[in-house]
Design a protein around this nucleic acid. Structure first.
Length: 559
DNA sequence: GCCGTTTTCGGCCCGACTGTTTTCAGTCG
């Protein structure tokens, strides 16, 4: 059985291969679009398949439907396999490197027979790439840099990939009768943006009965290691997992032990024997026996939390339940895939009081960014939708910050909006001072309420651009401009360190999903986890505030 | 490959920068 996400992955690989083969670009786009649509579709693709309704997904026509059916029925797709013969996965991985696109990758593969990033790195170091058409010294250096940076996170996956897989596996195991209790542990439970594997703790009196149950799980690729109390293996999706089996008496002791970072647990358990923690009823009791108040998982990193727990002075971290709205949402007016009405209804269904529609501005033309005229038309639509829907819809924009720090709209235009996010989408390679000055100039603009995805990082894909974070936070504090925690699991930007620093300076934060699809509104939880890792409290985050308070705050800023 | 009461065929698809060139293809957001 395959999930929507796994099917989407195959379709995306097909798109990549077709692109390298220089096939019809619209065909490539069609495969990507179908992949995205399946990835995000609310219903299980297997259920759709059984009722013959796969082509009801927008962007999926006859050809893709047939391929998906073959994939779901047989677990493989002949067309995909055939394409992989021509262009192996290693070549597709080369595509992920900055500066390398389909044409260059094709040339490298065809002319030098290079078929993986490892081979590519070697060739680049030996200067065997320069001389290929379009490849010179700089490209070679960029490749080496790109691969070396990637190696730092080697084998790690984003929380956004790992957490749903871990939850799905845990749900399956909790349904098995020998399992009395269970939890995700390790770095996923602490909410780290990049994790190396899935660790799950299970309470059971019958550890011997677990193995055949685990083998039944549809998402298992291999089981590699079995020893008393442990089952290790790999899930399809190439993520390693480890199950830790423990007697119920020691469950909460192990839950604390297996969740905290090494530094955290070494300090709190220093020479204490497990027997001291037997039969605890919850985690709070474990911490209590250590003379500490309960430390939330996201804080268990030995960054000062242990001392505060001893004094009972831990921060009161915000939680998902505190979130009252989403201030960064796209629609079909730019590169979103759903109308404002759909997004607003979905936000209302999540219990939100408000959303801000913040489509892109004109200079981001690939996204269909709005010009002044269309912005006005959009405002009309928002006004009419607001009459009909039980949720406040703020008129916003994600305005582009230009190279010189000016904005893509004149102040008069921005003044007509309820909320302005300013973001960088170009000139990522400015030097540190230029990039910092540029963003500070945007911070200084009185119409700008929030700076979007400040550092521009894309986890596992692109490093943050050069910035003087401290200067930016000082400016944000001075001009009372909020910083965004972009909740998309590929971004989580600003990161936890920056968030913690911002809080110390009294800079407000907005946690935003940046949703381009209604399903993406639920990515908010990753942003909340990131905020908790940054020690943020409810008061620090403006979209935990009530609608009235937020609107007052925004209008007072604009006066 | 998808889509469609202006079309079942012909659109879909943007513009600037970068590094490589010697006039521009390839990459990127």
């Amino acid at each position: 059985m395959m999930t929507n996400q796994e099917v989407a992955r195959v379709l995306r690989q097909i798109a990549d291969i077709l692109q390298i083969k220089d096939d019809n670009p619209f065909k490539v786009k069609a495969y990507r679009k179908a992949a995205d649509a399946i990835y995000h579709f609310d219903e299980d693709i297997n259920v759709l398949q059984q009722t013959g309704r796969i082509n009801e997904i927008p962007g999926v026509g006859r050809a893709v439907q047939e391929k998906v059916e073959e994939l779901l029925q047989t677990g493989a797709l002949a067309y995909h396999e055939r394409l992989l013969q021509e262009v192996p996965v290693g070549v597709l991985n080369m595509l992920r490197l900055p500066g390398l696109g389909p044409r260059t990758v094709r040339t490298i593969h065809e002319q030098l027979g290079i078929a993986s990033p490892d081979e590519l790195l070697l060739a680049a170091r030996e200067h065997r790439l320069r001389g290929l058409p379009g490849v010179g010294e700089k490209t070679e250096l960029a490749i080496i840099k790109g691969i070396e940076e990637g190696q730092q996170n080697r084998g790690k996956v984003t929380l956004g990939e790992a957490l749903p897989l871990a939850e799905s596996l845990l749900r399956f195991l909790l349904n098995a009768s020998p399992v009395l209790d269970g939890s995700i542990v390790g770095s996923i439970r602490r909410g780290k943006p990049l994790v190396s594997d899935i660790d799950i703790l299970l309470a059971t009196r019958q550890p011997d009965k677990l193995l055949p149950i685990v083998r039944e799980y549809p998402g298992i690729r291999t089981i590699t290691d079995i020893e008393p109390g442990h089952i290790k293996g790999q899930l399809s999706g190439e993520i390693d997992f480890e199950l830790i089996l423990v007697d119920p008496e020691y469950y909460y002791f192990l839950l604390v032990r297996a969740t905290g970072s090494k530094a955290h647990r070494d300090i709190i358990f220093h020479e204490q024997l497990p027997e001291h923690f037997i039969k605890a009823g919850n985690e709070a009791e474990i911490y209590q026996r250590l003379g500490l108040s309960l430390i939330p998982p996201e804080l268990r990193e030995n960054r000062g939390e242990i001392e505060l727990a001893r004094r009972g002075e831990l921060p009161q971290l915000l939680s998902m339940a505190d979130i009252k709205g989403d201030l960064h949402v796209h629609s079909t007016w730019s590169d979103g895939v759903e109308g404002i009405g759909e997004m607003a209804k979905a936000a209302h269904a999540l219990g939100y009081q408000y959303i801000a529609v913040t489509d892109h501005s004109k200079s981001l033309s690939i996204s269909g960014g709005l010009n002044e005229e269309r912005l006005l038309l959009q405002a009309k639509e928002i006004e009419s939708l607001e009459q009909k829907l039980p949720i406040a819809i703020l008129k916003g924009i994600e305005v582009d910050i230009m190279k010189d720090g000016s904005l893509d709209f004149a102040d008069e235009v921005l003044a007509g909006l309820d909320l302005v996010i300013a973001s960088v989408h170009s000139y990522f390679k400015l030097d540190k001072n230029g990039q910092t000055e540029r963003i500070i100039k945007a911070i200084q603009n009185p119409h700008v309420d929030i700076i979007g995805h400040l550092s521009g990082r894309l986890l596992n894909r692109r490093p943050a651009y050069e910035l003087d974070i401290k200067r930016i936070i000082e400016a944000a504090a001075h001009y009372q401009t909020a910083l965004e925690i972009n909740a998309h699991p590929d971004r989580l930007d600003i990161d936890e360190e920056t968030a913690r620093l911002a809080r110390e300076y009294g800079v407000k934060i907005a946690i935003n999903s940046d949703a381009h699809h209604r399903v993406d509104l639920s990515l908010m939880r990753y942003g909340v986890m990131n905020a908790r890792r940054g020690w943020l409290e409810k008061e620090d985050v403006i979209n935990t505030w009530s609608k009235e308070r937020l609107l007052n705050y925004l209008s007072s800023r604009h006066d």
